[in-house]
């Protein structure tokens, strides 16, 4: 099953400049694994060396943050849209 993944500008160089890619999988983790096999440059930027989601990215399944669903085990279905967004933070300190 192919699911659409929206890629933020900062990661597009890793996926040949595309803003949207399709990947196969039944869970967020499987999708990202499939994405990383096709585009190895994106691998370490979304999943950390510990196998968990990188803390500098937020991943949405439709309108829901997957951290509050099943994280990488969150199931996806045909027609779902997954969005990868960079975490945006800073401050005056």
């Amino acid at each position: 099953m192919a699911v659409e993944i929206r890629i933020p500008t900062v990661l597009r160089p890793a996926v040949a400049g595309q803003s949207v890619v399709k990947a196969e999988g039944g869970t967020i983790g499987e999708l990202l694994g499939s994405l990383a096999r096709e585009y190895p440059a994106i691998a370490g930027q979304v999943i950390g060396s510990d196998g968990a989601m990188h803390r500098f990215v937020n991943i949405y399944l439709n309108d829901d943050d997957v951290r509050y669903l099943g994280k990488l085990d969150t199931k996806v279905a045909e027609g779902d849209v997954v969005s990868i967004l960079p975490a945006v933070a800073g401050g005056s300190d």
């Binding site: 803003s19 967004l85 975490a87």
Partner: peptide
């Protein structure tokens, strides 16, 4: 002293920008 931009607001902004043929080009704080 610090900010963490709400990720859902980021998602909505990203979609709104795309709907008008644009994209997110920066952040202000």
């Amino acid at each position: 002293r610090v900010y963490t931009l709400n990720p859902l607001d980021h998602l909505k902004a990203d979609r709104a920008a795309e709907a008008t043929g644009h994209e997110i080009i920066g952040v202000y704080h």
